[in-house]
Design a protein around this nucleic acid. Sequence first.
RNA 1: GCGCCCGUAGCUCAGUUGGAUAGAGCAACGGUUUCCUAAACCGUGGGCCGGGGGUUCGAGUCCCUCCGGGCGCACCA
Length: 560
Amino acid sequence: MNPVQELHNLLEELIIEAIEACREEGRLDYQQLPDFVIEVPREKGHGDFACNIAMLLAREARMAPRKIAETIVTMINSKSHFQIEKIEVAGPGFINIFLNNSWLYDIPVLIAELEDRYGYNPRLGQRVQVEFVSANPTGNLHMGNARGGAIGDTLANILDRAGYDVQREFYINDAGNQIEIFTDSLETRYLQLNGHDLPFPEDGYAGQDVVETVKRIIRHYGKQLLDMSSEERRKILLDYALEEKVKYIRKTLENFGVNYEVWFSEKTLHKTGKIDEVVNYLQEKGYVYKEEDALWFKSTLFGDEKDEVIMRANGIPTYFAADIAYHKDKFERGFDWVINVWGADHHGHVARMKGAMEALGYDPDKLDILLMQLVRLYRGGNIVRMSKRTGTTVSLDELIEEVGRDAARYFFVMRSPDSHLDFDLELAKQQNQENPVYYVQYAHARICSIFRQAEAAGVRMSGIAEIDPSLLQEEEELALLRKIADFPEEISVAARTMAPQRIARYVLELAGLFHSFYNHHRVLCQDQRLQNARLLLMHVTRITIKNSLKVLGVSSPERM
RNA sequence: GCGCCCGUAGCUCAGUUGGAUAGAGCAACGGUUUCCUAAACCGUGGGCCGGGGGUUCGAGUCCCUCCGGGCGCACCA
């Protein structure tokens, strides 16, 4: 259910019918209807909806836009429409439509019926996959991964509400060059801790967590790995470390409210020969050439700045080759839409990844890469320097520990992915209106409190059928209703534009309208009929706040 | 040097496929509590939407150019 969309469609039909009728009567002359817009004007005085068709038609119809608008309006007015209060021509030729409130009063009844399902648009029968975080299983989850987790999961939730069948996926980079280096680090640490005096690899993983992992391995295996061949030893070290790391990543993300349907192992692509397969295929198609013993993919054919190596001179495929095979696999699984959430530092890969899909015969427009800018951590006014070298990096676990899951989830999505995110740890912990999470959660708790008060006073909301929502006439009540009615459309736009920050903003505005209502009017009052209508309003406000927060992965406390 | 992102109120940021008089929160200033949570609300001030050019009936939004900031430009991922 999407009431705003339904109204929109209704008005669109109405206008098209009117225009066509005008043409038939010879009042308007045009060949084809232009792509006009029916939008919600910024200015309240411009009506509930406004249409720009007259301006777009002016040239072809050889008429002044206002004149055209008047012709259309006259035609529409010749029939009566029960939902339209008035319709007028304004400004350069806008058609402004003012509705009566009858549609608004249907909303709370519908929501009370739908409850948790309010916000869901009709099923589209389309499958979309969202791949996000996909952190290397060689270290802790950092702030970039955290933002990716919040954005990816929220986007997946939005797409679900928008009507898609969504699958969340984590790509485990458990093969390739970084894993070799990781294994070198593990082996060196193992030997060092067993008394061998060895230099640590220059580009190795020097973090303390690797040492801790190796210590656990020693506790488990003792010195028996010393007697093995390096190959055997490395396999055991790596398998143990990977299992531990992946388990840790999964646990941290679950703790963050992120749950994946699929954990996809890069290693399987190597094992099953899918990488060689796709490289050979591209070679046969002539998209690959050899230079200095390496194989290069002609990504410049697809608008990339330069070609990219897919097979090194030593015969080992690059990360890019594995990624092509991986994305080919995604499309083979039949998704209608494939979305990756990447850090902005990977933006250089977008063109060649899409190019590779095109070379394989897939529609590159079905692959969207959502790039997100980096995160800067602040504590009060001071930036928290994040350096892996000095070990001052803050991990996702530590962040959740410090500010809580709710604040972390909300803060990571409240800005556009395109914007750098300044994450203020102090603000995230504050319990006042400066902190948007608390502001919204407080609104929910306040509504719960009203119902507790009501119950204590022996008051219960009547059955829906006995409530008359049209008693809600106050400005604050209508504004709140209007905002509540927007929710499904807000979801729909957020899905279309891949913009999770819209929901964070939406629920903040919704909470603001509630607080404003609360401070102007009493729910529990002498007038039984009005009290019932307001209890219903509170009921559906609570549902909408809760459903919005659910999309963001933020809890809705009943008291605070 | 080339490419991508960003530049909007003192600060942090919104701003559907171009729409009418550019918004919110915080900060500043002033007010609200015999009343369901003052963890809240109401009001006031604050802007050449980085500069310049162009397209359009109409540009914060699209194009060009310049300036400033971030990121990338490996047989790393």
